[in-house]
């Protein structure tokens, strides 16, 4: 089954639908290697059997209930040390779509989308291919819980859990891809500062006191995100930057 998205310029003009797939990111990677994929292609599946999360973690989903897809981009205008910019674009775009359904979603650094009270609804897994100092291609894998009842899984929820309604996956996919395309074009145009500000504005606990651990527990304030994507935290008056896994949020 092939469909295309009507309301976009270049994303989703080619969509590969798979009834079942190990991982849409892996499938996209294979196509890229065989030079059978290009910018804008979407790999979409109803049943992802080995969905990839953070290196080794799995992303569980019931067939046909949630959105699991990968989007191929070729952000050759970005240097490899600017790759966090693309991550911000993707997270912000997902947040903007979810915000139409509920005002209590936030982005959790670096790339999860949470509901303030109910937990995680979406995750992003970006796999890049670099050509020396420049980005060659990016596979943007997105998992979004839509119609699956997630109540049995602690700290996770779906749109269905939130509103009691079920949704047409295709409609939500279309909204997401349109939004990503729009913000991606803005990034290409050099609007990174505006995009970064929007990402920060919707970041969990931005500019609020909270408990962290970086080996020792302390009360600090997230004051921003560096160009390299590191989290900038005010720790006792001095500003520290943390990579993923170098800092934990406590009590969330």
């Amino acid at each position: 089954m092939y469909k295309i998205l009507a309301n976009t310029v270049f994303l989703g003009k080619e969509i590969i639908y798979l009834t079942e797939c190990h991982s849409t990111n892996e499938y996209a990677q294979q196509l890229l290697r065989q030079k059978e994929a290009g910018e804008g292609m979407i790999i979409f599946t109803d049943k992802q059997t080995k969905g990839k999360g953070q290196r080794g973690n799995r992303w569980w989903t019931e067939p046909g209930m949630n959105l699991t897809f990968s989007l191929i981009l070729e952000p050759k205008f970005l240097r490899s040390n600017q790759q966090f910019d693309l991550n911000m674009v993707v997270c912000l775009s997902i947040w903007e779509v979810l915000n139409q359904y509920d005002p209590n979603f936030v982005i959790k650094w670096p790339n999860d989308i949470l509901h303030k009270t109910h937990g995680k609804i979406a995750g992003v897994l970006i796999e890049n291919s670099l050509q020396s100092q420049w980005m060659e291609s990016s596979i943007v894998g997105i998992g979004l819980n839509v119609n699956q009842d997630m109540q049995i899984i602690p700290r996770a929820l779906s749109l269905f859990n939130l509103t009691g309604e079920t949704y047409d996956l295709w409609v939500i996919l279309e909204k997401l891809v349109q939004r990503i395309e729009w913000n991606y074009i803005r990034l290409k145009r050099g609007e990174i500062r505006l995009l970064r500000n929007s990402y920060l504005k919707n970041l969990l606990n931005y500019q609020q006191r909270q408990l962290f651990s970086d080996g020792e527990v302390f009360e600090g304030v997230i004051i921003g995100v560096g160009e390299d994507g590191k989290l900038l935290v005010d720790k006792g008056g001095s500003i520290r930057s943390y990579g993923f896994k170098e800092i934990q949020y406590i009590g969330l």
Binding site: Q54, R55, S80, Q83, F84, N87, P110, N111, L125, I126, E127, N128, S129, L130, Q131, S132, E136, D228, G229, K230, G243, F244
Partner: peptide, 18 residues
């Protein structure tokens, strides 16, 4: 040819040999 992955901020980068 991909020789390794470098991960930073949960972003995964395949590094190719030149």
């Amino acid at each position: 040819q991909t020789v390794c992955i470098i991960e930073a901020m949960k972003l995964f980068n395949e590094i190719e040999s030149e």
